[in-house]
């Protein structure tokens, strides 16, 4: 795999992301709305008793992980887009292994996701969140791995879908449960057993847990376990993405 090829392929997506000003602003502002509305909306009611920290601080890592989920998943729409507008043919006849194309897409997805995460983490102290800067830096590799695995899932879906509508339908169907059953919005302690079981099966729960543990010091699982699960999901979904993408015909 030639690093220069990956760099240029990924740069193409990032450049286009930055060039589209309106959607860029919307993407960067959306997570902040979550913190404002949900964070301040529930702060009084939740208190600090059950979660160990102020609710806004508790919520920020969850929202950061959510931003990674949405942004990485939808970044794969560019494959559907490329197919629709014909550029995919140019990529598929190029003397580049399919795995390289997939890897570059995963990289660009996680770079754009990281941009959003940085905004969330940098702005959140203004909302009174107490984030450990060193912990936040350590959380970045976890979020990158999580973003890559989500984008791999998106690529798998995009490789099998012929239309925007088809892609949008499937992705929305996948993304809602992953988000709601992840502990991004609530602590994992004392959940009803059925919900707890679902949450344990969801790789995002571990990404949220690690990020929260590293950024604000509260977590449910051991952090090495969190990291292990996220990496395992990455390996599995990455393999699946390469396989689906390679099967695709122009």
């Amino acid at each position: 795999m030639r690093a220069e090829v990956v760099y240029h392929l990924a740069r193409r997506d990032v450049v286009k992301f930055l060039r589209d000003r309106q959607s860029l602003v919307a993407t960067l502002v959306r997570p902040l709305l979550w913190i404002l509305a949900v964070g301040f909306g529930l702060r009084r009611a939740v208190g600090t008793g059950a979660i160990g920290v102020d609710f806004v601080s508790f919520l920020v890592p969850g929202v950061a992980t959510m931003a990674v989920l949405f942004s990485s998943m939808f970044s794969a729409v560019s494959i559907v887009w490329d197919r629709e507008f014909g550029f995919l043919k140019e990529l598929l006849v190029a003397p580049v292994p399919r795995a390289t194309l997939v890897f570059a897409k995963m990289i660009s997805a996680s770079v754009t996701a990281l941009l959003e995460v940085s905004v969330v983490l940098l702005v959140s102290p203004l909302f009174g969140a107490r984030i450990d800067p060193l912990g936040a830096l350590l959380a970045i590799p976890v979020l990158v791995a999580f973003g890559m695995s989500v984008s791999a899932l998106g690529i798998t879906v995009a490789s099998r879908m012929k239309t925007f509508e088809g892609f949008g339908g499937i992705v929305n169907f996948l993304i809602q449960p992953v988000f709601f059953f992840s502990g991004a919005l609530y602590p994992l302690e004392g959940l009803p057993p059925a919900l707890a079981a679902v949450v344990r099966l969801n790789p995002m729960s571990y990404a949220v847990d690690a990020t929260r543990g590293l950024c604000v010091g509260v977590h449910h699982f051991p952090i090495p376990l969190d990291a292990g699960v996220v990496l395992a999901a990455l390996a599995l979904l990455g393999t699946l993405a390469v396989r689906s993408f390679s099967r695709m015909q122009a």
């Binding site: 507008f85 550029f87 043919k89 140019e90 006849v93 003397p95």
Partner: peptide, 15 residues
């Protein structure tokens, strides 16, 4: 793929 180049009939640029 290493040996060829293709100019497609249908559009294939990133506009």
């Amino acid at each position: 793929r290493r040996s060829i180049g293709v100019i497609f009939q249908d559009p294939s640029l990133d506009d």
